[in-house]
Structure formats: C-alpha cells, structure tokens
Amino acid sequence: MLYYIYDGSFDGLLTAIYDAYYNKDFPEQIVPQDSFTDNFLISKVYIRTEEEKSKKVHDAVLQKISRRAMAGIMYAYLSEDENAGISILEYLRFGFKVGRTVDSYLADDRVNNINRLVTKVAREKHLLAGIIRFRLLHNNIYYAPIEPQYNTLCLLGKHFADRMSDQIFVIHDVKRSYGVFYDKTKWFMSDIEMNKDIVLHENELFYQELWKRYFDNITIKSRINPKLQSNHMPKKYWKYLIEMK
C-alpha cells in the first residue's frame, strides 16, 4: 500500500497531486502527516511542499477544467475528511480527461465524492455566517470564539470584513487554534495562543441580556418544535451561542 504524506497545507496537497501525476503513481491514500498512523504494510512517500508545483496544478485546473472545479477541491480539502486527498486526486484525473463538463457527471463516484464534501463545507460556511457571535471586549475588540466541524473559518474572512468594516474583530477557531483578524483595513489569518483571560466591555452583558430577552420573547409557545430548531441549528454549535446558554 502506497501512502502519500503531506504537510497538511493546501499547497502540500497540490504538490502531492503533481508528484502522483509525474511519477505515474497510484497512491492508496494522500494524508496530512498529523492524522497519519503508520503500520508495516504501508510504504510511505513524504511529499516536500513546493509552491511551484502547487501553482502548476492550480493553473492546469483553471485552464483545463474550470474555476468551479478549483473551488470544489478547495472546499473538499477544508472538509478534513480522511478520504479528501485521494478523492481530489481521482476527481482531477477524471477532470483532466473530460475537461469542463466534469461536473455534469453527477452520478459518477469521482464527482459525487467531491460534491458531497463541498455541500457539507458550503452548508457550514453559510450557517456560521449567521451563528458566529461577537462579544465586545474591554479594549473595544469584537471577539467571537467558535468550534466549526470543518475548517471553514478562512472562507468567512471576507464576509465579515465587508460587513463590519469599521470594527476591529477576531474570529477564533478554538479547536484549530487559529483565527481570522480584521484591523479596519484588511483581514488576515494567524495562530492564536490564549494565555490571558478574556475581559468583557462593561456594556457587553447588558446587550447579551437584551438579546436573550428578545430571543425568549419571540418564540410562539403554541408552536414549540425543538426538533425543528435543532435540525436547523445542530446542538454541536450551541456552546458559544449567547441565546442558548
């Protein structure tokens, strides 16, 4: 069994794709090193990330397949699914063969596997755009902790920077220890190490109370349907929701 092991970055994954193509390899799996567990049946190839190779794959996808395909493999990668790497390779092999019509092959497993992952990530991205909650801190920074199931935070930087263009904010992926930062001019991503306690602004709890009051009040008691509520807003996201505490 041949395993390709890459550094976990998107560039690393694209480099692996490049190498598989040019070495004419058919790896069984392409996995990030962090989630790789060795056993003696596996023969390993460690991929050295090279931006030049990654860029070549990127350009080839845009040129020979489509922009949509590029976005698709990006989303699939962000799903962190254990089979994402190999699914992307198989999808691209097929895509390079049939060209821009690849996404019409909806019933083909190579396409379907990617589409399934894309749907999951896109859905979470849209949900998070709604359920991220900022708290105003004492130093006038708006801070939002969140634990997404997929690595979707990087897809939300632009959304919030456009919208909250006059406030400094941090959205913190607590699970993956990084965040999206915005300083009123541009947004960027950076690792976060929390070593201090968070101090709220003196007005923060006042608005949290008002929001909770509003939330409780707007419910129509004769239509209670908690199952419908958690279908829309799964419980795994409740931890940081002011109104669900």
């Binding site: 755009a129 359920i131 909250m164 263009s165 006059d166 008691k221 209670i224 419908l228 109104e243």
Partner: peptide, 29 residues
Amino acid sequence: KNKKGGIGNAAPSGICHSWTPDGRCISLL
C-alpha cells in the same frame, strides 16, 4: 453594499442568525 467606514451589508441569499424553540428562523430584529 456597505459604504466606506459604514456598518453592514445585505446578502442576496439572506442569512438566518438563530432559530427559536418553535423552529422559526431569526434573521431580523
């Protein structure tokens, strides 16, 4: 669209921000 130094914009698809126990979405105040 948001204006320079302004706050807020609209999303053509609409965005739900929470769901009350009756299962209805909260988007607007």
